[in-house]
């Protein structure tokens, strides 16, 4: 089957000499929910900018839904919906006008454009704001407006560059539900995010980019399976003055009621509870210190961590 996105040896050097991409390869299957993760300045936005025709590429090839970016740019653009990181609409235009205008750029006649605008504004809970100037919207509404605008021509693939940045948890979760539904209906979704629990819960496949190179690409589950160590925090009854000696378990005192310990692959929580019992500790609760993807991300992208785990 034709891939939704195929990137081969993509390079980009900006005019100031900064090498943003060092020949990356990236494949995204049709219908996938894919996350491109990386620290700030890693090359995520440059990659998506090139695919969206907002950044000139250096060398390499990009194909979207089988169409070559160099020779079939218009077809590539028709296949794509783009939600950029920064707000990029005319703040003096009304919400509905922004969508109808964008539909017009894709060749949708006014009647169909109005129907689509109504459909997506309703789906994204913005219909009652249709006559409001976009500058009057809240941050979360502006994000949803950009998603509605990107969908108005009903693209096969949606690119979202940090779609939930700066929105509250309730709106973020409603956006997750909307995107999950959209993906279930067949739209390929590629997103970048700094909320790693977002990528872990939404995306089936993940690529991690750092310093312009793809350093990991695999199904989310496989990536997490490869995670060798997880850190947990246990809250105990009573007061502790130092970390207890637990055989075969690396533990640290967090405060007088909490202990942090590392669990490597192959170690079971049952054994941990047994060790706590042997030490006379009454465990009240236990939780992961951070989410697993976040730990993996830090392991892969932080130099000191890379050296420590090497």
């Amino acid at each position: 089957m034709t891939k939704a996105l195929e990137i081969k040896q993509l390079r980009k050097v900006y005019d100031n000499g900064f090498e943003a991409l060092k020949g990356i390869d990236l494949d995204v299957e049709q219908g996938d929910f894919f996350a491109l993760l990386g620290p700030n300045g890693a090359g995520k936005s440059t990659t998506l900018g090139i695919v969206s025709s907002l950044v000139n590429k250096g060398s390499g090839t990009v194909r979207v839904c089988g169409h070559d970016l160099d020779t079939e740019r218009e077809r590539v653009k028709r296949s794509l919906g783009v939600v950029p990181q920064e707000f990029n609409f005319n703040t003096f235009e009304k919400v509905e006008d922004i969508l109808i205008q964008q539909a017009g750029y894709y060749g949708l006649r006014p009647r169909l454009a109005r129907q689509r605008a109504e459909k997506y504004l309703k789906q994204l809970d913005l219909w009652d704001k249709r006559d409001v100037q976009s500058r009057m919207l809240s941050g979360g509404m502006k994000r949803r407006l950009m998603i509605a605008r990107a969908l108005v021509h009903e693209p096969r693939m949606l690119i979202l560059d940090e779609p939930t940045a700066g929105v509250d948890i309730e709106i973020r979760r409603s956006m997750w539900r909307f995107l999950t539904q959209l993906n279930a209906e067949g739209t390929t979704i590629i997103l970048t995010t700094h909320y790693l629990e977002e990528a872990e819960s939404l995306c089936r496949n993940i690529a991690i980019i750092n310093h312009g190179e793809i350093i990991a690409q695999a199904p989310t589950k496989e990536l997490l399976k490869g995670k060798q160590r997880a850190t947990f925090v246990a809250d105990v009854r009573g007061t502790l003055s130092e970390a207890p000696a637990l055989e075969g378990l690396s533990s640290r005192l967090v405060d007088e009621h909490s202990i942090e310990f590392d669990l490597t692959n192959g170690q079971s929580l049952n054994r941990v509870f047994a060790l706590f019992e042997q030490a006379g500790l009454d465990v009240v609760s236990i939780r992961p210190k951070t989410n697993r993807l976040e730990e993996l991300f830090v392991d892969l992208t932080t130099p000191s961590q890379q050296e420590a785990t090497a």
Partner: peptide
């Protein structure tokens, strides 16, 4: 950018 991403 609305125009640049569109097939115009």
């Amino acid at each position: 950018e609305e125009l640049m991403v569109a097939p115009v």
